[in-house]
């Protein structure tokens, strides 16, 4: 492995861990403030919705249809594996039919 490859891995490792450490410190600071602490409880839900939004933002119509189907499965089943499996199958089927 070249020196530059070693350096890239080192910078990425230190940088990635530093970001996580900042998150840990931020969480502790926020939790010590009673006014802000209750909003930590709202953060996970909003973050996961943002992750979904980012993965759909540039998606085509088929992906949005598959996402709607996955949402229906999720609402009915409330099961991660079933939604993941049926989501993948619906995406695969839609691609097979329309692409």
């Amino acid at each position: 492995m070249t020196d530059t490859q070693w350096l890239l891995i080192a910078i990425l490792a230190v940088g990635a861990y530093s970001i996580r450490f900042v998150g840990l410190v931020c969480g502790q600071i926020v939790s010590q403030n009673a006014g802000l602490n209750k909003f930590l409880g709202d953060l996970p839900g909003c973050l996961i919705v943002a992750l979904i939004a980012s993965s759909l933002s540039d998606a085509n119509a088929l992906t949005w249809v598959a996402a709607a189907l996955a949402l229906i499965v999720a609402v009915i089943s409330n099961n991660v594996v079933a939604t993941m499996g049926l989501g993948f199958v619906s995406m695969f089927t839609l691609k097979f039919i329309f692409v």
Binding site: D42, G45, L56, A67, A70, V80, M84, L86, M91
Partner: peptide
């Protein structure tokens, strides 16, 4: 073959599990 969408579907299911009721609707 659409593997990437399996993650989106998994996140949708996890959001469903985190849903606490109408209070979450507007922020989400």
């Amino acid at each position: 073959y659409g593997l990437g969408f399996a993650f989106t579907a998994a996140f949708i299911a996890m959001a469903r599990a985190m849903w606490r009721g109408l209070q979450d609707a507007m922020p989400w």
